[in-house]
Design a protein around this nucleic acid. Sequence first.
DNA 1: CTCATACATTGATGATTGTCAATATTGGGG
DNA 2: CCCCAATATTGACAATCATCAATGTATGAG
Lengths: 116, 116
Amino acid sequence: MNLLPALEPATDEACCAPAGMPALGAEEAKQKAVVFKALADPNRLRLLSMVKAESSGESCVCDLTGPLELGQPTVSHHLKVLVDAGLLHREKRGTWAYYSLVPGALEQTAGLLATL
Amino acid sequence: MNLLPALEPATDEACCAPAGMPALGAEEAKQKAVVFKALADPNRLRLLSMVKAESSGESCVCDLTGPLELGQPTVSHHLKVLVDAGLLHREKRGTWAYYSLVPGALEQTAGLLATL
DNA sequence: CTCATACATTGATGATTGTCAATATTGGGG
DNA sequence: CCCCAATATTGACAATCATCAATGTATGAG
């Protein structure tokens, strides 16, 4: 009985293992990275935290601009990034714009980590 | 009987609510953003996925360079970012460097979202 | 000691991003 | 119709980042 092909299947060089396919496609990875890109800024994390902490469930820009030491256009820009990432929802009523967490969005994002 | 102070407590202007404090401190936010910054790149997500998919629990750089269409220095750089973020562990044995998931790191990161 | 291999580091470059000042837009009040 | 308040958009600029080519470092083989 030969004992040659016991350890390696057919690879000529060894190191650890063939490592298989990336397990996460390039397109899929780019998609998921968009959400984490939105979370990759301290001020955006604080915005999310403030919206989440609001008992009414929503906050207007005028309330979010103060606590952060940022100008109003910058806050608007960050909010847009969060909306584009699917984390916040925007509703305009009168002169004001109200932002609220998209239900389940944070949980779904947490799920992205589990299914890497 | 006056009916003035029925809706507002003492704020001179109204819109939604005083919004309280950021609920997430500036320093704390910066700290958490570091982890998400590390996740905010498609190729780093793929690297994590490949390391996680490895049955042995660890991968060497030589296995990770191929599937991604990146040069070896770039892969090394991405791995360093992931190590610095506390997501990957690096162990050098002989000529090879083996990367493995830090146990519980992904779960802990998911927890960051829950406690925003 | 010499050489080749596996990986890290450095320096440079183009692309992306966070921020602000200025301006535009939209809606309400007189 | 005109003005003001709240928000969004644009343009510009500095900073950060992803990538690569070149080089450095260490380890094992001969």
